[in-house]
């Protein structure tokens, strides 16, 4: 590990759907996403980053939090729904040393965490899509952490803070990337790709409200709003990627926000957003949500009652 303190250079929100990679020609919006990813790729390459740190809602874990530690995962994935659009073959460059550091930082904050490195492990579609768009030649090493199915906001914040701990300790210059849809309601029937649209006007209006805040650099405001957004617009995985991203980057509104693109992908809200730290931002508002520094375990309310009685 480097002796120099690491830093987080900024963050991005990227959509998880593979169609902009698999079939950009099938829909103008999907092609637009692929084209605008190139703008983000150029921005990242100019940043001097040496680590892309991803949280993907498509990698679901049960046993705590998993960090990918295979230095060169190579395999292929066929999407569960969009198999007829082809196969995603991948060969990635992962920062195994950082994965171990992240695991240790997570454990130091009370989280159950482990690294995984298995030949043939199915890297998730969101991670593959994002890295194909932003890092196609593996110029920058990546690290990916899973999205625990049961983690609540507090646990996800702690996971984000542990990511920041690990970056600082590792000396890496990192870009944090939340891989997630906004509204996540898909069309449950097969559609003509050319006719794709956001599933409902309500979803679209909520997505645009969130993007308005993000364009103002108000990431922490969006994090505070995530529960309501999820209820109203079927947010992807309760918007854990936003919680993680906000916690990793420091829980404030001091960013320059850029909405690179916003398009429907099979009904979901697919947005590409950049957040660069800024001297002057929107300022911190009054926050209602709790904060957490340390994870103290599952609540196990019913188990505890039973134990007390015995």
């Amino acid at each position: 590990m480097s002796a120099a303190a690491g830093e987080l250079l900024g963050g991005y929100l990227m959509p998880y759907q593979p169609l902009p990679v698999l079939a950009p020609e099938a829909n103008a919006g999907w092609a637009s996403l692929a084209a605008n990813a190139a703008r983000i790729r150029a921005e990242i390459e100019a940043s001097g980053a040496d680590l892309l740190l991803l949280f993907s809602t498509r990698w679901v874990s049960i046993i705590g939090h998993q960090m990918q530690a295979d230095p060169k995962p190579e395999w292929w994935v066929v999407d569960e729904d969009f198999h007829e659009f082809g196969t995603l073959h991948y060969s990635l460059r992962m920062d195994a040393e950082f994965a171990t550091a992240y695991r240790d930082a997570a454990r130091a904050r009370g989280l159950h965490a482990r690294t995984v490195a298995y030949q043939g492990f199915p890297i998730d579609v969101g991670t593959i899509t994002t890295l194909k768009l932003l890092n196609p030649d593996n110029r920058i090493a990546a690290s990916v952490v899973s999205c625990n199915a049961y983690s609540d906001r507090a646990e996800t914040l702690v996971l984000g803070k542990a990511a920041a701990d690990a970056v600082r300790a590792s000396g890496r210059k990192a870009i944090a990337i939340g891989v997630s849809a906004l509204s996540n309601r898909m069309f449950s029937r097969w559609i003509d790709p050319a006719q794709d649209r956001i599933h409902s006007q309500k979803d679209d209006e909520w997505n645009r409200k969130l993007l308005e805040l993000l364009a103002e650099g108000r990431l922490e405001d969006v994090s505070q709003l995530a529960r309501e957004f999820s209820r109203q617009a079927n947010g992807d995985s309760r918007m854990k990627a936003i919680w993680w991203l906000a916690a990793t980057l420091g829980q404030h509104n001091q960013y320059t926000g850029t909405v690179f693109d916003y398009q429907p992908v099979w009904g979901t809200g697919a947005a590409m957003v950049g957040l660069q730290p800024a001297e002057a931002g929107s300022g911190d508002l009054e926050y209602d949500e709790d904060d957490a520094e340390f994870f103290r375990g599952d609540r196990n309310v019913l188990v505890s009652q039973s134990d007390d009685e015995s």
Partner: peptide
């Protein structure tokens, strides 16, 4: 699948399945 009910339609499959949730147990 979120686009309805899908059915395997290839006569033969072979390969390696690694459980993304319990990869330590299932390869």
């Amino acid at each position: 699948t979120r686009t309805g009910h899908h059915f395997l339609g290839v006569p033969h499959f072979e390969g390696k399945s690694v459980d993304p949730i319990f990869p330590n147990l299932f390869q």
